[in-house]
């Protein structure tokens, strides 16, 4: 679906910005909003482009750079950090051979940080796409990732 068709569903109201971004990013194959699209959305809502950029970069749900099929987001807030027996990020980086904010060469995984995802009592936690994983250990992380690897084959 084209951005224009998504925009048509919404009134030209500033309040609709986040809805539009969520709606459109979900249907885009590489899960990001490009510069050209930011310009188009800003024009539609009569907002400065800088405002759209600010909102887009504030929320970890959104990205202004192309991402892989599966988006892994590791919580970096304090409760997850102090409950960690394992360095979640390092484990994933090692498994996938990428650093944070990078995408695997086969475009399957993008690794990111996120701020709190509301699982403080069961940290450390991460999110892959829409699914939350809690009480992570090194083995658990490896098992979860291999599940996604199976999916993709």
């Amino acid at each position: 679906m084209l951005l224009k068709e998504v925009l048509k569903k919404y009134q030209r109201k500033e309040d609709n910005l986040i809805e539009i971004l969520l709606d459109y990013q979900a249907i885009k194959s590489n899960h990001y909003i490009s510069k050209e699209e930011i310009i188009e959305i800003a024009e539609y809502l009569s907002l400065p482009e800088s405002k759209v950029c600010s909102v887009l970069t504030f929320y970890t749900f959104f990205s202004d750079k192309p991402r892989g099929k599966h988006i892994i987001q590791v919580c970096k807030d304090v409760p997850c950090y102090i409950s960690s027996q394992v360095n979640v990020l390092k484990t994933i980086e090692k498994e996938l051979g990428i650093r944070v904010n990078e995408t695997t060469q086969n475009q399957q995984f993008t690794l990111e940080f996120t701020s709190c995802i509301g699982c403080c009592e069961a940290g450390p936690a991460m999110r892959i796409n829409d699914k939350i994983y809690t009480n992570l250990t090194a083995d658990k992380i490896k098992a979860i990732l291999s599940e996604y690897r199976v999916y993709m084959q």
């Binding site: 400065p48 482009e49 800088s50 600010s54 970069t57 504030f58 929320y59 701020s115």
Partner: peptide
């Protein structure tokens, strides 16, 4: 509207 805040935290 040239300058803006980017990112969070």
């Amino acid at each position: 509207s040239v300058l803006a805040f980017y990112g969070r935290g």
